[in-house]
């Protein structure tokens, strides 16, 4: 067993911290962190009150990221998300005679953005966010402004009440590296939750575990995880299956394939491995693939990954 590096120690610390806040959800936390390390964005699909906000808040605290929350409603406008320039007659400096337009940054200018109930907003507002996610910058009134780095969006949506919502189209779902759902806690965690202190409060009091530099370093290390030909062939078989053999109306996009590889690499890194193994791909597969191919498969979205997992040979 190789000696864990400093970075890997810090990963363990992140886990310990988060597991204290969100009880009994190790896998989901691991996936969320893998998503973050792979520089992807996360979509959490779950009922209200399952700890979506707490998770994102805790994540922001533990990683020392600036955190903003946008509650999406049907009348939210792009400007509410990106920010707006407001005319100020007298500038605060007071040395200018004429008023100026001053840009007031929206909540998106933050390292970790929680976009709550993203499917409540109109497509117009949604696309403002999604563009920012893809480009890492926003263009307002002809001026391009970079977003802070790292930039990580956690969007949530509620699968149960679908009336009055604008479901995200496939093209926009594709921008989320992973989609996860948290689910109910098990009996033991529930008991702990009921007897313990308020988790939200706990999340707010969390101390920063790793520095920004360390986080950057970890993200760099993801790319350095070795993927052998054998495992890449497995990945390729999966992609090929979704496109030509599985009987879906469309398959995994190249972006989807790259995302799968990156997520798997992040997973390998979390498990303190310097090389990628098929189990890494298998572990992240449902959260990376299911939301991309749900419509293509005409069935419950959980089916696609199960089918892939059961039908693709690991070693040919």
């Amino acid at each position: 067993m190789p000696q864990p590096s400093v970075n890997q120690k810090s990963i363990q610390q992140i886990f310990d911290t988060l597991n204290n806040v969100i009880l009994g959800k190790e896998t989901q936390i691991k996936l969320a962190i893998a998503c973050l390390l792979a520089k992807g964005h996360l979509l959490i699909e779950d009922l209200p009150g399952m700890g979506k906000t707490t998770l994102s808040h805790a994540l922001a605290r533990a990683l020392g990221l600036s955190y903003n929350r946008i509650q999406f409603t049907s009348d939210i406008l792009p400007a509410d998300i990106l920010g707006v320039s407001i005319f100020e007659k007298e500038s605060s400096q007071g040395n200018e005679q004429h008023g100026v337009f001053r840009f007031h940054a929206g909540p998106i200018f933050s390292q970790l953005v929680l976009a709550d109930e993203i499917n409540r907003a109109t497509p117009k507002a949604q696309s403002a966010l999604l563009e920012a996610m893809e480009e890492g910058q926003v263009t307002i009134e002809g001026e391009t402004r970079p977003l802070p780095s790292p930039f990580f969006v956690i969007a949530t949506q509620n699968p149960a009440s679908q009336s009055g919502t604008f479901p995200l189209p496939e093209s926009q779902l594709d921008r989320f590296l992973m989609r996860i759902s948290i689910g109910y806690p098990d009996a033991k965690s529930e008991m702990e939750l009921l007897t313990g202190i308020d988790r939200r409060k706990l999340a707010g009091e969390l101390k920063q575990v790793i520095s920004l530099t360390e986080l950057n370093q970890l993200q760099e290390e993801v790319d350095q995880v070795h993927a052998s030909t054998s495992v890449l062939e497995y990945l390729q078989r999966i992609i090929h299956f979704t496109r030509y053999e599985g009987g879906y109306s469309y398959g995994l996009s190249p972006r989807g394939g790259l995302g799968l590889l990156k997520a798997a690499k992040a997973w390998a890194l979390i498990h303190q491995r310097k090389h990628l193994i098929p189990e890494d791909i298998q572990a992240v597969l449902p959260s990376v693939v299911d939301h991309r191919l749900a419509d293509a498969a005409h069935q419950s979205s959980h089916g696609v990954s199960t089918q892939i997992l059961q039908r693709i040979a690991v070693i040919k």
Binding site: I277, P278, E279, Q282, L309, Q310, R311, I312, A313, V314, I315
Partner: peptide, 8 residues
Amino acid sequence: KEHEGLND
């Protein structure tokens, strides 16, 4: 199993 990784 064919779809089973070596680790599992």
